[in-house]
């Protein structure tokens, strides 16, 4: 007879397999580099990258850079919410507006906005403002689309409950439509903040300014390959932690889901 899997197996095994896969890939890469199959002047040894992590954290002032990146991410993220949610609600409320603009907003999500950075440099100079404005625009599309989707997905029966209780438009919005749309609005926040983080680091790299993106650029220009890859690994690590934290926050804020 089949036995129920223990919590250690159900939770621990996937994590162990995931970690083993990463270690396996790095191990294989290390072997290929040491055997000369892959050129060491292009890809550094993973063991060198690992050793460089401490160096970049201590010598390259990573924490201060992280603070700078975090500031830009939080500012951009907050602006995407402040601008995206009202626009998403407006697209739900006025159907002709939705028909006219929804495809354009979706196109905005697919556009490689980062290529427009020279234009923003001209407008805002080589500053945090450029990074923030470009990142807000990058994160705006998923925020708008998911907000609209959330409102549209409100079950008609809940709206009928509101009508049967003779709710005003404002009550209907704040007490039924908005709470009902919240799960998808949170999904929008998670997606847009992820886009924002990628955008912030990418633009910092491109315009060689500020936080973690600039660090990667600096190390690459010094041709410090292990350092560059260590910085990239650090950014990936930060992204993973950031993404997991957003997911946890989403679950915590919506205990009913």
């Amino acid at each position: 007879m089949a036995r129920a899997a223990s919590p250690l197996m159900t939770r621990g095994l996937p994590i162990a397999v995931g970690a083993a896969s990463v270690i396996g890939v790095f191990g294989l890469l290390e072997a290929l580099l040491r055997l000369g199959v892959v050129n060491r002047y292009i890809v550094p040894l993973p063991s060198d990258v690992l050793l460089s992590l401490e160096r970049i954290i201590v010598e390259e002032n990573v924490l201060a850079r992280m603070r700078e990146t975090a500031y830009e991410v939080v500012m951009s993220g907050l602006f995407t919410i402040l601008v995206g949610v009202p626009i998403g609600a407006a697209l739900y409320r006025w159907r002709p507006l939705r028909r006219a603009l929804e495809d354009w907003v979706a196109a905005l999500a697919a556009a490689p906005l980062v290529l427009a950075f020279p234009l923003f440099l001209v407008m805002f100079g080589r500053s945090s403002t450029t990074v923030i404005v470009m990142s807000v625009i990058t994160g705006l599309a998923p925020m708008i689309l998911k907000t609209t989707e959330g409102f549209v997905a409100t079950r008609p029966v809940l709206i009928n409950v509101g009508k049967s209780l003779k709710m005003t438009d404002s009550q209907m919005f704040w007490k039924i439509l908005f709470p009902s749309a919240l799960p998808l609005i949170f999904t929008g926040i998670r997606l847009s903040w992820t886009f924002v983080l990628i955008s912030v680091v990418g633009i910092e790299f491109l315009i060689n300014l500020g936080g973690l993106g600039q660090l990667i650029n600096d190390l690459a220009e010094r041709y410090d390959l292990p350092g560059t890859y260590a910085a990239i690994c650090f950014v990936i690590l930060v992204s993973v932690v950031f993404f997991v934290a957003l997911e946890r926050l989403e679950t915590w804020l919506q205990p009913s889901r």
């Binding site: 079950r155 029966v157 809940l158 009928n160 409950v161 049967s164 003779k166 039924i176 709470p179 009902s180 919240l182 919506q254 009913s256 889901r257």
Partner: peptide
């Protein structure tokens, strides 16, 4: 106001 409605579909507020 004198009529209270109960709907066929599940209509509790999940939040």
């Amino acid at each position: 106001p004198a009529i209270g409605m109960v709907f066929q579909e599940e209509s509790t507020f999940p939040w």
